[in-house]
């Protein structure tokens, strides 16, 4: 059965706002304040980074993640698909802005033979996607690193249950 997931409106609005603010704070001074070459270089690099960030936000807005028995796919502009047989690795990272590393977000990176798909925890059903990916990785004997295992546990996913569920 095919399952489809999209990023939440709140998560997308926050991403767009961050992108716009970043562009305003970097490209704005670059265009208006005639900065020194070293400062211009730093502002230019920042503006380029926020341009990429904005472009990625738009792509994410237009993308939905689909899961089925055959594999995982990101449907939308520049989409990608990975068949479960081609799944090489599953990595679950955690990033936080605060020093105590609380209040952060997770990122699931699925690598196939040729393509990889990166999914942020702002998507509805993130835990479901992570569980399915971990289960499929376990079915195919792909080892998950210690970090990914700890993050799955933090998401409430029991690894032994994921492995048991694998036929």
């Amino acid at each position: 059965m095919k399952r489809s997931y999209r990023y939440t409106r709140g998560a997308m609005a926050a991403q767009h706002a961050r992108g716009a603010a970043g562009l305003a704070l970097t490209a704005g001074p670059l265009a208006l304040l005639h900065p020194a070459p070293a400062v211009a270089l730093a502002l230019g690099a920042g503006a380029a980074l926020f341009l990429v960030y904005c472009a990625r936000s738009v792509l994410r807005h237009l993308t939905r993640i689909e899961l089925d028995e055959a594999g995982v796919a990101a449907r939308g502009p520049f989409g990608a698909a990975i068949r479960w047989e081609e799944l090489r690795s599953v990595r679950l990272d955690y990033y936080a802005m605060q020093r105590d590393r609380s209040g952060g977000w997770m990122q699931l990176v699925l690598r196939g033979a040729r393509r990889s798909i990166s999914i942020d925890s702002g998507i509805i059903g993130f835990a479901d996607i992570a569980l399915t990916a971990a289960r499929e990785a376990a079915r195919r004997g792909r080892a998950l690193d210690e970090r990914t295992q700890a993050h799955l546990v933090a998401l409430g996913i029991r690894l032994d249950a994921a492995a048991d569920a694998a036929p």
Partner: peptide, 16 residues
């Protein structure tokens, strides 16, 4: 640090 050790501190907990 984020590149080398993108790990959750389990006592802190993830929000999402």
């Amino acid at each position: 640090l984020a590149a080398l050790d993108p790990r959750i501190r389990l006592s802190g907990g993830a929000t999402k």
